[in-house]
Simulated scan of single mutants.
Amino acid sequence: IMDKGAAFYKDFGMGRSRGTIPIQIAGNVKHGGLFETAFGLTLGEIVDEIGGGTASGRPVKAVQVGGPLGAYFPRTLFDTPFDYEEFAKRDGLIGHAGITVFDDTADMLKQARFAMEFCAVESCGKCTPCRIGSTRGVEVLDKVAAGIEAEKNLALVTDLCNTMKFGSLCALGGFTPYPVMSSITHFPEDFKPAPARVAAE
């Protein structure tokens, strides 16, 4: 910007997301690290071309964008441009642009539970939706994992997420629903009762 001016820098990017952004790629990926690129590359280009796919050599199952409270995107959404508005349209967020890659051995029910547990541990306790919602979220997801009234308890998790998203005082409780709901939405097979999951595998 100092060398060539704001207009030159603004030419990078797309839509309202102008310039460049530093992206941190981690997890099960060949080429992890910090990269700077213009807004507008697709998620698939970032994961497959810059990141080089998984370190394990197995297929990519999910990519979490935006840190531990970012949404999980399946390969079917890899055409999403890295742009704040485009991610928002698909119920995701760029956040601090952290990208974590998971291969096809990842259990998305466990990842959803981790998000609720993370929120419960990190909650300051000031507001009820975050403090109580996340604790109950862990308990209910444990029931789903145990095959206890899975359909009913998944509906309860969805209700909890809506309460947390719109009722929490800060982004911790407000963003926890992103990884939870994206896991349920995009990877429903991982939330089936245990016997059905074993049979499917």
Rank of each mutant, 00 (worst) to 15 (best):
M2P: 10
D3M: 11
K4L: 14
G5F: 10
A6N: 05
A6H: 04
A7V: 12
F8P: 06
D11F: 09
M14K: 13
S17G: 06
S17Y: 07
I23P: 08
I25T: 02
G27P: 07
N28Y: 04
K30W: 08
K30F: 08
H31Q: 05
T37F: 01
T37K: 02
E45F: 05
D48I: 01
I50R: 03
G51E: 01
G52I: 00
G53C: 12
G53K: 00
P59T: 02
P59F: 01
V63R: 07
L69S: 11
L69D: 08
G70L: 14
F78Q: 00
T80N: 00
E85A: 13
E85F: 10
E86Q: 12
F87D: 03
K89R: 13
R90H: 01
L93N: 02
H96P: 13
G98Y: 06
F102P: 06
T105Y: 09
M108Y: 06
L109A: 09
Q111A: 10
A112C: 09
A112N: 08
A112K: 13
R113K: 11
E117V: 04
E117C: 09
V121T: 12
S123N: 09
K126S: 13
C127Y: 11
E139K: 15
L141P: 07
D142L: 14
K143R: 15
K143I: 14
K143L: 15
V144E: 06
A146G: 13
E151L: 04
N153A: 05
V157P: 06
T158S: 08
T158Q: 09
D159N: 08
L160S: 12
C161M: 10
F166Y: 08
T176V: 15
P177E: 08
P177Y: 03
Y178G: 03
H186F: 01
E189D: 03
D190I: 09
A194S: 10
A196L: 10
R197I: 11
V198F: 02
A199T: 09
